[in-house]
Every structure is written in structure tokens, then in C-alpha cells.
Amino acid sequence: MNAATINWLVLAYLAIWCWADGFTTTAFVLTVLVSFEALWKPFVNSSLAVKLFGTETMAMLQQKNVTGRQKNILQEKLYMSLSPNERALTDEVLQQLSAATKWLLRAYRAEEDNDALTDLSIATRMLELAQEPLLNAKRMIKTRKEQDNND
């Protein structure tokens, strides 16, 4: 699931929740945001958008979309250029960040303040643990680059 889909789902959930709880102003704003998110991509690719904004603006927008895809490809190439040990450390960091995120969400959903503080404490510790492999990976990359420059 990509970030745009997750954002769309979160906005939809919040809009439904606000309508159910009677927060009509907030619900209306969120509904407009969800609708905008859902209808944006089809609109951008329509002839109406070209008529409203002109061909130059639409060409520039398409170029930004291509640039975003190129950035994702570049990030993938960068990840693949890492040595197996560097990739393993990077994966370990990402797993620990994922675990920390889960604890932060638990803290957010906690009913009692004490439970929230405990969950925040665990999340903080997970973030601290994620620093060590990240620093090790950074050192390994720096050392490898220095060795490559000396060769």
C-alpha cells in the first residue's frame, strides 16, 4: 500500500468518524479533502484540465510526475548499490522504526495516561535502538567510499 492510498484511507476514516460524532464542520472539510484526493488523478488526465489550465501548465505537471518516478527509481538503485552488510543494517533500522511507529500508535490509542506513557517510553527506546545500526551503516558506507577513492 503506497502513501497516497494510506492518506486517502485515513482521510476517509476521519471524515466518517466526524460525521458520526456530529463534528459537521470538520466532517465537511474532510469530505472535501477525500473527494479532492479521489478525483484529482482522473481530473489531471482529462481534457477539461488542459482547457482550464492550458497545455504548458499540464506539461509542467506531467514533468513533475515523471521526476517523482525517477526519484523512486534512483532511491531503489541507491539501495541496491549498498553492500549486503549495509543493506542488512538498513533493513534492521527500518524494522525498528516500524516497531517504534506501532508503539507510538498504541500510545496514541491508549485509554489511560499511564499506558500512553509506557508505550511512549518503549517507542523512544526503539528509536534509540535504531540509531546504532544506522550509524554502523553510515560508517561502513563512508569507509567503503574512502577505500574506493584510494584505489
Rank of each mutant, 00 (worst) to 15 (best):
Q75V: 15
A123H: 00
I122N: 02
K138H: 12
L61S: 09
N65H: 14
E92V: 11
L61T: 15
K138P: 07
L105T: 11
R106C: 01
D113S: 02
S47D: 14
K71R: 14
E128M: 02
Q95Y: 09
T143F: 02
T5S: 06
R109V: 01
Y108E: 02
N149Q: 07
Q62E: 15
E111C: 00
L48S: 13
A110E: 02
E92I: 07
L97E: 09
R69P: 15
E56W: 04
L127W: 03
L39C: 12
R139A: 09
L105F: 07
T26A: 00
V44M: 05
K41F: 14
G22M: 03
E112T: 13
A116P: 06
L33G: 05
L135P: 11
E92L: 08
E112V: 04
V10I: 07
V93S: 08
W19K: 06
A27E: 04
T55F: 11
Q70T: 13
Q75H: 15
T26W: 00
Q96G: 08
S47T: 15
D91W: 02
A110W: 00
F28I: 08
V10K: 07
A38S: 10
S35K: 03
N72I: 15
S47F: 01
A130F: 01
A3T: 14
Y108N: 03
A130E: 04
A27L: 00
V10T: 03
A123Q: 01
L94C: 03
T57I: 10
S83E: 02
V32I: 04
I6H: 01
F23E: 14
I73Y: 01
K138W: 14
T24I: 09
E56M: 03
R125S: 04
I16N: 00
P42S: 05
K64C: 07
W8A: 11
P133N: 01
W40H: 12
T143W: 02
K77S: 11
G22E: 05
R106Q: 10
E111V: 05
L129A: 10
L82E: 08
M126C: 07
D151M: 05
N72C: 03
K51F: 06
K51P: 15
R125F: 11
D115P: 08
A137G: 09
Q62R: 15
K102C: 04
G68L: 09
E112G: 00
F28C: 10
D115H: 01
L94E: 15
